[in-house]
Write a protein that binds this DNA or RNA. Structure first.
Lengths: 203, 203
DNA sequence: ACCTGAACACCGTTCAAGT
DNA sequence: ACCTGAACACCGTTCAAGT
């Protein structure tokens, strides 16, 4: 009497990503994903060794549904285009960027992204340490800005609370406080991205 | 019979930072900090409302012991010098960067750092959106690279495990694998930092 | 005023049992 | 082969009690 499994690796990741989109990355746990699948927590251990592997599988699945670097553009454009798309994709999965930046060296699909970025650099005549330095800088920058965006997700209620409580201590932040609103982070992301890519002096 | 407290806010933060340096940021909990102080977990609730506030207080204390932006340098040099010092300080507190990048808008001492960076920009003739964009970009970049450094702390054992398991899937990463070693991250951090600051075209 | 200890709702995980 | 349920060691937190 061998029943077929109620769920496979793909539905496990789907369930996990559903939890992320609805409640954010910190809500991902063995129990919450099991609930999403409608099984008991222990059933997940058929496919993963522990909670860490569960999280890695879900974070990796997010890379598969995200944008891949394009090979039909010159390196600076390929970097910028991927960066904008990846940023958009990451902020749809609140809190994910924080996990990915710490664990990308263990995540196959995120390593695919790095591989493709290096490949574009290679096709463009850039190689070795310079290529790795450039790709790593853009990769880290994108993940970092997604985290900042996540940080501003709490709404203006408790945002910059210390500054609103004590404006005199932070005169420049206070004077520029509209610039720290969440709506401006996309623009600042693009300004910094343009600066970074330009500064890398590719071609 | 009013005893004086066994510990104050300063010793609470000291104990917390001791835990971070010894075991890393994820080890910080109400119970681990209470153990470090030699009191029961509930004793901490005299000074903090909950575990979130405890973590914010400890993360904030780390900014106080770290470098402050210098006002005696031109803006590009001030940014670079602060970035290098902050990066060094962050990697001594494994895992801290990840928390700070998500919570800096609620951390008074980290907001002081942003305030000082904006102040240097102002003294240098840069102001408004351009100043905020530049400061935020450098801030996010430094925190991101510290996280990457933290990510490589596990030793080469499980580093890039998917690449070592399947080299043919990642030809460019494989060919450049020495560049992904932890020892190279400091150099790549500096390359990206120089590019970012140069690209911001300050002055 | 300050601290402790028991208790409860979570979490990850082991293990024995069920089909 | 696949899944469940009880149980245990954690964590944050409430509450009543102790000095």
């Amino acid at each position: 009497m061998t029943r077929r499994p109620q769920f496979d690796a793909a539905s496990l990741c789907e369930a996990g990503l559903a939890v992320v989109r609805r409640e954010g990355w910190p809500a991902v746990s063995v129990r919450s994903v099991a609930d999403e699948l409608g099984v008991s927590p222990m059933a997940l251990y058929r496919l993963v060794a522990d909670a860490g592997e569960l999280r890695r599988r879900i974070a990796d699945a997010a890379a598969v549904t995200g944008p891949q670097p394009r090979h039909d553009l010159p390196l600076p454009d390929a970097l910028r285009t991927w960066a904008v798309g990846a940023h958009r994709h990451l902020v749809r999965h609140r809190g994910l960027a924080s996990f990915v930046l710490v664990h990308w060296t263990e995540l196959p699909a995120w390593l695919d992204v790095v591989e493709h970025l290096l490949s574009v650099a290679h096709d463009d005549g850039l190689d070795g340490p310079a290529a790795v330095a450039s790709v790593n800088a853009v990769f880290a920058y994108v993940l970092a800005r997604a985290q900042v965006h996540d940080a501003l997700a709490g709404g203006p209620r408790r945002q910059l609370a210390p500054v609103r409580a004590e404006p005199g201590r932070y005169p420049h932040v206070w004077a520029n406080r509209p610039e720290f609103a969440r709506a401006r982070t996309e623009r600042h992301f693009l300004v910094g991205l343009a600066a970074l890519v330009a500064g890398l002096s590719l071609r």
